[in-house]
Amino acid sequence: MRIPLCLAALTLTAGGVGLTTIDAPTASAATCSDIDVAAARGTFEPGTLGLIVGDPVFSALQKKLTGKSLSSYAVNYPADLSATSAAQGNADLVNHVKAQAAVCPNQRFILVGYSQGANVVDNSTGISSDGAVVGSPIVATIPAALEPKVAAVLLFGNPIRALGRSVTGTYQSRTIDFCAKGDPVCENGGDDVLAHLGYTADADAAATFAAGKV
């Protein structure tokens, strides 16, 4: 069942659900850290990397990867309900990985995507989000030569799952994809709108998974 776009807006608007502001990491580009965490936030999601997912995941990664230096990058895209939003994020994420790899050849990447941001990451790894809530056709993919530099892919509330799709192929073993029970954005027939806002609870599990891949 396709979820109306207005639901995506409702579920990702933080103002009415009692969310509180937390200290967020500072996003940076062209920093030759050991690991670059590139995060695509959800539709209308506040925060530097994303209040619900990106910021808490980055904090959890800092605690898990104490022997590594980390930088962060907030994917630059509208994260709104426009038809081209996810495609813009797709292009920006791929361009970022290519640019970083050119400047920092020893750097590896952890890709993080929440809701529409998961569509962005899906497309960038070659899995189309076309037809999903706030999805788009693929406009760019991470080049095959750079695929080994992607250590882990962390997805939350991934809309393609409601269509029966998932990350397969090259990135499958490096991907963890959280879908809360009843989340209508990633579960076909899900009816628990608030489930889509609860992925902060999975930040530690996601960081543990990523730490095992680095």
Rank of each mutant, 00 (worst) to 15 (best):
M1W: 09
M1I: 12
M1A: 12
C6F: 15
T13G: 15
G18T: 07
L19I: 10
L19F: 15
T20Y: 12
T21R: 13
I22W: 09
T26S: 13
A27D: 08
T31Q: 09
D34E: 11
D34L: 00
D36L: 12
A39V: 05
R41T: 01
T43G: 07
G50Y: 12
L51N: 10
K63Q: 15
K63P: 00
K68F: 12
K68H: 14
L70E: 03
L70A: 04
L70T: 09
A74L: 03
V75W: 03
Y77H: 05
D80P: 05
L81E: 13
L81G: 13
A87S: 15
N90Y: 02
A91V: 15
V94L: 01
V94C: 05
V94A: 13
V94E: 12
H96G: 04
V97S: 01
K98M: 11
A99I: 00
A101K: 07
A102V: 03
A102W: 06
A102T: 14
A102S: 14
A102L: 11
V103Y: 07
C104M: 00
P105S: 03
N106Y: 06
Q107I: 01
Q107T: 10
R108Q: 15
F109M: 02
F109Q: 06
I110A: 03
L111D: 03
V112F: 00
Y114C: 04
V121H: 10
S129H: 08
S129K: 00
G131A: 09
S136Y: 06
P137G: 13
I138P: 03
V139P: 06
V139F: 03
A144C: 05
A145W: 03
L154W: 07
G157N: 13
G157H: 08
I160Q: 06
I160S: 04
I160Y: 03
L163F: 02
G164Q: 01
V167D: 07
T168I: 08
G169C: 00
Q172W: 06
S173Q: 06
R174G: 06
R174Y: 07
T175D: 05
T175Y: 08
D177G: 02
D183G: 08
D183L: 03
C186K: 00
G190R: 02
D191A: 10
D192H: 07
D202E: 14
A205V: 11
A207P: 00
T208H: 05
A211S: 13
G212H: 03
V214H: 08
